[in-house]
Write a protein that binds this DNA or RNA. Sequence first.
DNA 1: TCTTATATTTACTGATCAGTATATTAATAA
DNA 2: TTATTAATATACTGATCAGTAAATATAAGA
Lengths: 191, 191
Amino acid sequence: MSASKRDILVRGAMNVFYREGFNATGMDKLAKETGVSKMTMYKHFRSKEDLILAALRLRDDEFLSSFTRLVEEGAKTPKGRLLGVFDALADWIEGRDFYSCMFIKATSEYQSPEHPIHVASAEHKRKVLAFIQGLAGEAGAKNPKLLARQLFMLTEGETVTAFILGKSGVAADAKAAAKVLIEAALPGQNT
Amino acid sequence: MSASKRDILVRGAMNVFYREGFNATGMDKLAKETGVSKMTMYKHFRSKEDLILAALRLRDDEFLSSFTRLVEEGAKTPKGRLLGVFDALADWIEGRDFYSCMFIKATSEYQSPEHPIHVASAEHKRKVLAFIQGLAGEAGAKNPKLLARQLFMLTEGETVTAFILGKSGVAADAKAAAKVLIEAALPGQNT
DNA sequence: TCTTATATTTACTGATCAGTATATTAATAA
DNA sequence: TTATTAATATACTGATCAGTAAATATAAGA
């Protein structure tokens, strides 16, 4: 009951923060949008910052689990999964609920590297990077860490570019680049 | 005199907006920081939005001119300049005044694609992309547009990654990726 | 039934937001 | 000197910000 109200609040906050930004979203608006009264909000979270952190945590959970599942179900070979990262990303970007990356936007508003919101965003990104690095290792890359970092940068650039310049063609171009990088990073095979 | 006050204001606003964000920076703070009184600010700009647009215009001018000059003076061959993009980027990222990209952050706070601030940011990015595309064409890439979009995405990802996960190694990894992409996109040569 | 504890709502706090009206200063012109 | 004009500073507007105190409704226990 009380837990459910909390969940409604966090999920609603996550959506509004994602679409409209953090500084731009007031607590009153959140109360109205989620149907949870302000006092109840402050019973569950001591501050707006705490609520933002909870929203980011939810996003982190849901994004990573659906993203990794999509990649792991999408291809059988490690190399196929490595490339599949860019198919999963394409799905997300080309969907109707894409408004860039919530964590990139969070660091844009909370810039200090020590700020808890910045830290939480960095942790999320490190998880994504670690997932890619795992795939690169399984695929037998000569330097899995390097390849993972390069592919990760490509995903970040793809996300930002799709948001600023428009989605059209971006995912395909990024996937083509990924293919080149992956081929070059795996020990000689003529495929 | 009056023009100079305007310049002081715009430059000061640019710096504060860059370091601390747009929504997080109030007009009072800007007045105090630049030494230009609020009334004078509003004599030169009708609104905060207009001042932000002026600050972005200044940034666009200065960033692009110094960036393109750096690239063009840094290497003689077109192919060298294409790779030199990533040296220029490394200089910027590893400098002490790097707080990610002002335009990426601007679109994070003004998300609607129709918003003038979002539009101005997109125009800046299109200029950067066009510059890279020019280099790719001169270098004789098979598909200059594709290569430019891929390298552009890599620069965006590099910038964001350096800001969120830290600068260490990012520029070198991105440059190595760029080298692979460039080699693959230029018609056969054994170098 | 009455009592007590808990949720929730309403109404508020002081601070700050963007933007402006008024007062004051400074400079020029005669 | 005095009149006029332009630039600046002070002080304000109503709106909204994050956060809270007091009042009301609800529930459970006896």
